[in-house]
């Protein structure tokens, strides 16, 4: 089916400002959520550097630990951790929107999926912590 209506060619279109997302709180929160990916990447690289340091021997391992204590890296760690936690929370909260899990005919409610995400988070954190430290 086609549509014949012609445009008068004089319609008005408002441009979006470059920093459009600063006008609404919900959009600022959205952009912050998206920027958590920087925290994710940052910490992935830290992990990689840590492994590199470990594989190069004891000295470079302690060197790395020392480096992590420098004020700049402390601050980066704090900021990236906040980002990571915000990432985890938003991710777990939104996951039920994308995932529809059915048990036979019964559709598992979103809240159950969300809560099981959090449960998984806690369990994994405990396992990883124990594994790393003991």
């Amino acid at each position: 089916m086609t549509n014949t209506t012609k445009s008068s060619g004089k319609s008005y279109k408002k441009e979006m400002p470059i920093l459009w997302w600063t006008r609404r709180t919900s959009h600022i929160i959205f952009v912050m959520r998206e920027l958590t990916s920087l925290g994710v990447a940052y910490f992935a690289i830290i992990l990689l550097l840590l492994i590199g340091a470990i594989s190069q021997g004891e000295e470079s391992y302690y060197e790395f630990i020392k480096l992590m204590k420098s004020p700049i890296l402390i601050w980066l760690s704090i900021i990236s951790l906040l980002g990571l936690i915000f990432h985890s929370v938003t991710w777990f909260n939104l996951a039920p929107k994308a995932m529809v899990v059915k048990f036979g005919k019964y559709r598992i409610p979103g809240i159950v999926i969300m809560l099981s995400n959090y449960a998984g988070w806690i369990v994994i954190s405990i396992i990883v912590g124990r594994f790393l430290l003991y």
Binding site: V40, F43, A44, I46, L47, L50, I65, M68, K69, L73, I74, S77, I78, S80, L81, L84, I85, H87, S88, W91, F92, A95, G120, W121, I124, S125, V128, G129, L132, L133
Partner: peptide, 19 residues
Amino acid sequence: AISALFLPVLSIIIGLAIP
């Protein structure tokens, strides 16, 4: 998903608890 599950705990240990 994997970063949401694994990274916060690693970050707390390596980035804060140890330093």
